[in-house]
Simulated scan of single mutants.
Amino acid sequence: MFTGIIEEIGQVVNIEKDNTNIHLDIKASIANQLKIDQSVSHNGVCLTVVSIDDSKKTYRVTAIDETLNKTNLGTLQVGDFLNLERGVQLNSRLDGHIVQGHVDQTATCIEAKEHDGSWTYRFEYNPKQQNVTIEKGSITINGVSLTVVDSEINAFSVAIIPYTFEHTTFRYLNKGDTVNLEFDVIGKYVKRLMGLKN
């Protein structure tokens, strides 16, 4: 489980294809604090650490075909940056919201605006999966816990403060880019329960 509070921006330094899977080597200062089998969120995708190279400050994770088809990880190239977060510790504060690291679907950034010290981004997604947002509700975008500013059936906006802009990959995000979405888990259970009653 995660909180959506990003610890660090990592960088992809190597990509290896292995049949339909890919191995990603990530450079990050937290690499020497990790251990094999540990879960780390990469742009909101929970992946397992499979090896660590302390001398290079890198670690390796593997993304399988299922993950590549449902997230933006398949579009990564060497040099790209990722939002990283280690699993939440149960004795710490939950500063974001409950994030599972299971991406529901992707969305496209359709608008990115700067407002003299803050930024707004608007995203559009396929409504066929019936995922929903609500105004002032929680949403996870590329692993970042954010609050929905306005909500439509297939689109929503978020506002970004300077700290979030500087300490996440939002500073690299442009109109037309694809992002990973994880919708609020409580909302998903409510939607499912309501569907069972009909």
Rank of each mutant, 00 (worst) to 15 (best):
Leu90His: 04
Phe123Glu: 05
Thr140Val: 13
Glu124Tyr: 05
Phe123Val: 04
Ile134Lys: 10
Ala112Tyr: 14
Thr108Ala: 05
Gly87Lys: 10
Val144Thr: 14
Thr108Arg: 09
Arg86Met: 07
Val148Arg: 06
His102Lys: 08
Asp116Ser: 15
Gly87Glu: 11
Val103Glu: 07
Asn83Thr: 01
Glu114Ile: 02
Asp116His: 14
Gln130Gly: 03
Glu111Ala: 11
Val132Asn: 13
Thr140Ser: 14
Leu90Gln: 12
Leu82Val: 15
Gly96Gln: 10
Thr120Gln: 13
Lys113Met: 09
Gly96Trp: 12
Phe123Pro: 01
His97Thr: 13
Ile134Asn: 09
Val144Phe: 08
Ser145Asn: 04
Leu90Pro: 02
Ile141Gln: 01
Gly117His: 06
Tyr121Glu: 03
Pro127Val: 02
Val99Asn: 02
Val99Thr: 07
Asp104Ala: 12
Asn91Ile: 06
Glu85Arg: 01
Asn131Arg: 02
Tyr125Asp: 04
Leu82Phe: 11
Glu85Gly: 00
Val103Asn: 07
Gly87Phe: 09
Gly137Phe: 03
Ser138Glu: 07
His115Cys: 06
Glu111Ile: 02
Asp95Ile: 09
Ser145Trp: 09
Ser145Asp: 06
Lys113Arg: 11
Lys128Ala: 13
Ile139His: 01
Arg86Cys: 00
Thr106Phe: 08
Trp119Phe: 14
Ser138Gln: 08
Thr147Trp: 09
Asp104Trp: 09
Asn131Cys: 04
Leu82Arg: 10
Glu135Met: 10
Asn83Met: 05
Gln130Trp: 07
Arg93Phe: 14
Arg86Lys: 11
Thr147Pro: 06
Gly137Met: 03
Arg122Pro: 00
Ser138Trp: 12
Thr133His: 00
Ile134Tyr: 10
Thr147Phe: 06
Asn126Pro: 00
Val148Trp: 09
Asp104Thr: 08
Gln130Thr: 01
Glu85Val: 06
Thr133Pro: 00
Asn131Ile: 04
Ala107Thr: 04
Val99Cys: 04
Ile134His: 07
Tyr121Thr: 04
His115Pro: 00
Tyr125Val: 01
Gln129Asp: 13
Cys109Gln: 13
Gly79Phe: 08
Phe123Cys: 01
Val132Gln: 15
Phe81Cys: 10
Phe123Gln: 05
Asn142Glu: 14
Ala112Lys: 15
Lys113Phe: 06
Thr106Asp: 12
Pro127Met: 03
Leu82Trp: 11
Lys136Ala: 07
His102Phe: 06
Glu85Phe: 05
Asn83Leu: 03
Ile134Met: 11
Thr147Met: 08
Thr106Val: 09
Leu90Ser: 08
His115Gly: 02
Gln129Lys: 15
Glu124His: 12
Thr147Lys: 01
Ser92His: 14
Pro127Gly: 00
His115Tyr: 13
Phe81Asp: 07
Gly79Asp: 06
Leu82Lys: 10
